[in-house]
Design a protein around this nucleic acid. Structure first.
Lengths: 179, 179
DNA sequence: TAAAAATACTCCATAGGTATTTTAT
DNA sequence: ATAAAATACCTATGGAGTATTTTTA
């Protein structure tokens, strides 16, 4: 008996807009009984009839007339939230945390950081001290991505968001010799 | 791999506000691993890190800083939608559809309609023609509810929203001798 | 050492699908 | 007779819990 989900509102709005359960089902790419279910859940969970089934035609009644509007508003805000997140993941804004400490990295980092900063001015780059092992490999692959004009987000996705740099997630904050 | 639900946003906002997974879990009355899971899902599904786990302290980073605000906005709109629905179910606005046709009902309906209209001026009452059987009983119980100062919604809930009046849902529209 | 978060796993609710029946045009 | 929604039934995904391990302060 969960609360209505985002899908409930969206589905309901489609049913009203299209005037039909089955066409809404096609549009949403789910089955017709699925649409039936979601609408029924909205009604049952609130003890209100929202839709008038008159023959093959469905029409909103009472509270149902206002719901599609709310559905659109909800959808809008959710889209905004997701957009804000993907905007960050696209690398236009955000923070990159690099682990280093091995002096060898000094020879690799500077060009990488330069290309990062020119490509993504909004990036907040933080360099931290850590142990060497897996970090080096990550740094190198990051550099390759930069050279091939890929975005940071594709690197993140390739590795999964956590740990951002394997083995570096608990590094202590160190110095940034390249600022 | 469903979309994030309303709970994901709400949970995340709580975690940021309280600065802790476990206290957020207590507040939301779910388990700590449950909170962990939802946050991780938000991150994994978008390929972004939203939270900085620095020891026992959690802080929002990057996109995570904006999310609680969106969470509140989403919650607000959803609450508005639910409010709109319950406002209808409370009987202050809405439509009541009565099935009749049996002449016997003429003797019961008038006082009921009068009390309905005085108690809930916003109601849109529609009387339709139908067959007699179960309708009579429903009408009578509706009348009792009015007399005992209950709301229409409690009647709806008692029967379930559909059919509003058992057996009358496919009645043809008839006359309203009491307007 | 104590706390907090992450994992591992298990289970159950339920969302969603297929097949079928009912209903209305 | 046809098309659409409701119903019945089933399956599987995944959400949430308990128990445990890991980590850090």
């Amino acid at each position: 008996m969960g609360r209505p989900s985002l899908d409930h509102f969206q589905t309901f709005a489609h049913v009203i807009d299209l005037g039909s359960f089955s066409t809404a089902a096609q549009r949403l790419e789910i089955s017709q009984p699925g649409v039936s279910l979601q609408v029924r859940q909205l009604e049952r969970r609130h003890g209100i009839r929202l839709i008038e089934r008159v023959g093959r035609r469905v029409t909103a009644i009472a509270a149902g007339e206002e719901l599609p509007d709310y559905a659109r508003r909800i959808d809008g805000v959710v889209m905004d939230a997701l957009d804000a997140m993907t905007r960050h993941s696209k690398g236009t804004v955000g923070r990159v945390r690099l682990g280093t400490g091995a002096t060898a990295c000094i020879y690799f980092l500077p060009p990488i950081l330069r290309s990062l900063r020119s490509g993504f001015p909004g990036l907040d780059i933080v360099v931290t001290a850590g142990n060497t092992s897996a970090i080096l490999k990550s740094i190198l692959s990051l550099g390759k991505l930069c050279q091939s004009r890929n975005t940071v987000s594709s690197f993140e996705r390739a590795q999964g968001p956590r740990p951002f740099i394997p083995g570096a997630s608990q590094c202590e904050v160190g110095h940034d010799p390249f600022s």
